[in-house]
């Protein structure tokens, strides 16, 4: 009975649809992760700025990202932007924008923590050598914080992959929504469909997230000193 449920994968275009859904998930997640990891480094610098006004602005940014749920941001960007300016963003673009906005704040906070955990004497040694601020970041701060950033940023990346399931609310059908559509359609004839579909989605998420943690372990070794 359970194994006969497997047929759900071979009916119609179900498998192709699941894979297409996975591609949507991957596309949104990976583009967002790539951008917000870079932007997050800069956000982190701004969060440790010597100017109180810059720090305060970044604080407001971070808190507003944290207080307002990602789903609300998705609505604001996907529907709100259209209503306010008549600009019709695609669901995927809205999703990437929100994920970058969210991820950059979170990444920035991770970077801020890493920078502040660095002994103040490290920066002063760099200054005493005559390094410019940019050179201190490039040669002293960045190489030392990268490794400290790894665990938290990998955590953020996998969180972002999983949060892509929210993009269904802006009309983007990713892998989980595809699965639900298939389950609801197949349910009457194949009650075991839910088990198999969710099982496959579990494996797919694992296949996406596991290489990320493998990469992180690799980098932790490479960046060891």
């Amino acid at each position: 009975m359970l194994s006969s449920g497997l047929r759900v994968f071979f009916e119609g275009r179900n498998m192709a649809r699941l894979m297409a859904g996975l591609l949507v998930t991957l596309k949104i997640a990976l583009i967002s992760i790539a951008i917000c990891f870079l932007a997050g480094l800069l956000a982190g610098l701004l969060m440790t700025s010597k100017r109180p006004a810059v720090r305060a602005a970044m604080r407001v940014y971070l808190e507003s990202v944290r207080i307002v749920p990602v789903l609300v941001w998705l609505f604001l960007v996907f529907f709100g932007v259209t209503r306010a300016w008549g600009l019709n963003l695609s669901g995927e673009l809205a999703a990437v924008l929100v994920f970058v906005f969210w991820g950059t704040a979170e990444m920035g906070d991770i970077v801020r923590g890493a920078i502040q955990s660095l002994p103040v004497h490290q920066r002063q040694s760099g200054m005493a050598l005559g390094l410019t601020e940019a050179q201190i970041y490039r040669h002293v701060v960045a190489p030392q914080i990268l490794r400290r950033l790894l665990p938290a940023s990998i955590n953020l990346a996998t969180r972002m992959v999983k949060t892509t399931s929210l993009v269904v609310f802006v009309g983007v059908t990713e892998v989980v929504k595809t699965g639900q559509q298939i389950i609801e359609f197949s349910n009457s004839k194949n009650p075991a469909a839910a088990f198999w579909i969710y099982g496959l989605i579990f494996i797919l998420y694992f296949l996406v997230c596991y290489p990320i943690s493998l990469l992180s372990r690799r980098l932790e070794k490479v960046w060891a000193y």
Binding site: S125, V140, P143, Q144, Y225
Partner: peptide
Amino acid sequence: VGMVFQSYDLFPHM
């Protein structure tokens, strides 16, 4: 002006 500190702050990653 060269300066050497009490806490011998070499850069640990180099």
